[in-house]
Amino acid sequence: MEHIELFFKSIFIDNMVFATFLGMCSYLAVSKKVTTAVGLGAAVIFVLAITVPLNWLLDQYILQPGALSWLGEEYASYDLSFLSFIMFIATIATMVQLVEIIVEKFSPSLYNSLGIFLPLIAVNCAILGGSLFMQSREIATLGLATTYGVGSGIGWFLAILAIAAIREKIRYSNVPPALRGLGITFIITGLMAIGFMSFGGMLTGGDEEEKTEKTAQIETVKDNSTTKEIANNTKVID
């Protein structure tokens, strides 16, 4: 259930392009044709699906304050979180080069059409954004991190696919010359983003609230059992 929730949330509500405006540059630059858009979108899904869980492991076992405690008690006080940016970027850049080599080997035609854009995935802020969101939203397990990576990737894929399809059709329309190309794409994306904002309403689903209520109750019950002790201790305050 948690997985399904996170999956759809990351596709629609927290859509990388329309909600957080990440990965805009390649989104605008590579969306002229549906086929290239599909190629780049697939590459983004793939890279996100690998890097988010990988960076989750890095974060949990190396970077977080106290994460090194598996090495022994004396390492528990180390805090390497200042390295997270660099570590995340290094993972991403390595993975991107790997994808580049694989695509070049198995699908030269795709490689040719993606051309210079494959290296650009490394700087696609959606990828680093995925890892940073994973860290800041404190995603709890490796499985959820993978779900989040795949979901965000699919969200990005969906966005670039939609805009590429619209741009192919819009060639037959009579757009003012100065607005052709980039200008109209910006405006269409803006309108699409307004549309996607309506998904935000789904976010306030009752599920999460119920859960927190329950845990809060448990905590209060726990607290109640010891209220006597509090009463004894509050003397200090009066």
């Binding site: 329309f18 405006f21 003012p176 010359p177 100065a178 607005l179 052709r180 190309g181 980039l182 200008g183 109209i184 794409t185 910006f186 405006i187 994306t189 803006g190 309108l191 983003a193 307004i194 904002m197």
Partner: peptide, 27 residues
């Protein structure tokens, strides 16, 4: 104040810029 409007404002800036400088117009 919402971010989608930023996209539309940039779109309009591009429109103005390319109307003034025809050489920048795409195909």
């Amino acid at each position: 104040l919402l971010s989608p409007m930023a996209l539309i404002v940039v779109g309009i800036i591009i429109w103005v810029q390319r109307t003034k400088n025809k050489a920048l117009i795409e195909d």
